[in-house]
Simulated scan of single mutants.
Amino acid sequence: MATASEMSLTAGQQMISSCSGAILTSVFVTPLDVVKIRLQAQHRPQAFTKGHCYQYCNGLMDHTCVCLNGDQGTGKLPMEELRKHLKQNWYKRPGNFNGTMDALVKITRNEGITSLWSGLPPTLVMAVPATVVYFTTYEQIKWHLGYSYGSQSSDWWKPLMAGGSARVFAVSVISPLEFIRTKMQSEQLTYVRVWEAVKATVSQNGPLSMWRGLGATLLRDVPFSVLYWGSYETMKSHVLANQGRPQLTFLESFTAGGLAASVAGVLTLPFDVIKTHRQIELGEVVFGKGKKEVTSTWRLIHNLYQNQGLNAIFSGLTPRIMKVAPACAIMISTYEFSKAFFRKRNLELLENT
């Protein structure tokens, strides 16, 4: 069964811990994706014209964003034009960047350091609730299964089951909200018109239309969660058993989280490539911005392999690991640190009563 220390946290404290981790992760990781998207917009401007979709990730969630109106710019930033360019959508601002570091320096110098966090506020509205639901559900399922770091070796399947189940639940809850968020962004609708658009979509295509693309998302996220939590809990149990301590240090949880994310990221890379292609294509069709026909996920796998070869399914390994590993390391270490704080506080309150 779970230890007293695992049971001493309330669901509210678990939610606060995951919320703090989500915010901190987003703050640290968002600049990397902002730079990535600005570089993509510079090298492939045709992919960022009105109606096309691109992927934005703040370290916790992937978002399908629809490009709106806006001049692509000349690629130069004379002072008299700076104000005009800064009014453009952040992903379309010109910059003449020569690489990641050059983009970081030029964006900070020409647009201000806050431009590195462009797009963060609206995605936090989705990412924080999704992360809270995911981590809290994971902890609750793990606790009900009776798993703790001192469990027997035969309990290895419990964190895997908890991780996979929590991800299915979180993605299923958030998917309709992400659909609505993208609908609002793509057509700049008011809340009243969004509600009318949602009712029309459900009426025409059925309730399941609110979960379009769910299969492709689960195809990547569930295996990742299973591998991540299985790896992390195994390393955690091993360290704590050898050290004879009830909890990891911040550095230990940071390292274990990064290693677990790297393992899961490598093994689920093909699913990530498929999900990205599927979501961008789906976004263009759902919002009437593209002419491609939405096909099944397995059909997309076949098309990628037939048209671009096996390498296409395993592309982007280094960028994925460079983003996923630090994001998961920051998230889990902050989460564990916050839980340790609440455990200590709860014990002090218990001793004083």
Score class of each variant (00 low, 15 high):
66 V>H: 13
116 L>H: 04
296 S>E: 05
168 V>R: 01
31 P>V: 05
147 Y>M: 07
271 F>V: 05
96 N>K: 15
32 L>A: 14
120 L>V: 00
125 V>T: 02
80 E>G: 02
67 C>A: 15
92 K>T: 04
56 Y>L: 10
167 R>Y: 02
153 S>E: 09
331 M>C: 12
189 L>F: 09
326 P>N: 09
106 K>M: 10
201 T>W: 04
349 L>P: 01
288 G>K: 06
112 G>Y: 13
317 L>W: 06
106 K>N: 07
184 M>W: 11
114 T>P: 00
227 L>E: 08
8 S>A: 15
141 I>M: 10
217 T>N: 10
93 R>Y: 03
149 Y>L: 07
280 I>A: 12
233 E>D: 05
47 A>G: 00
328 C>A: 13
34 V>E: 07
74 T>G: 09
124 L>Q: 03
171 V>H: 03
307 N>S: 15
198 V>K: 06
339 K>Y: 06
178 E>D: 09
172 S>C: 12
272 D>G: 02
177 L>E: 03
8 S>V: 12
15 M>E: 08
204 Q>P: 03
41 A>T: 13
161 M>V: 06
49 T>R: 11
49 T>C: 00
282 L>F: 01
166 A>K: 03
201 T>F: 05
149 Y>D: 09
208 L>G: 03
177 L>G: 05
20 S>G: 13
190 T>N: 06
128 V>Q: 06
131 T>L: 10
102 D>I: 04
28 F>V: 15
159 P>H: 04
159 P>T: 01
5 S>H: 02
87 K>C: 12
290 G>N: 12
235 M>R: 04
54 Y>L: 02
34 V>I: 12
150 G>Y: 01
161 M>Q: 02
262 S>K: 03
227 L>D: 07
32 L>Y: 12
310 L>C: 11
346 N>R: 03
217 T>S: 11
187 E>N: 13
351 E>F: 09
24 L>C: 11
11 A>C: 13
17 S>N: 08
77 L>W: 03
109 R>T: 00
157 W>A: 03
290 G>A: 11
205 N>H: 12
12 G>N: 00
99 G>D: 08
116 L>W: 05
91 Y>W: 13
330 I>L: 14
238 H>A: 15
235 M>A: 11
112 G>T: 04
31 P>R: 07
285 V>W: 00
98 N>H: 13
233 E>W: 03
49 T>D: 00
241 A>I: 08
92 K>P: 03
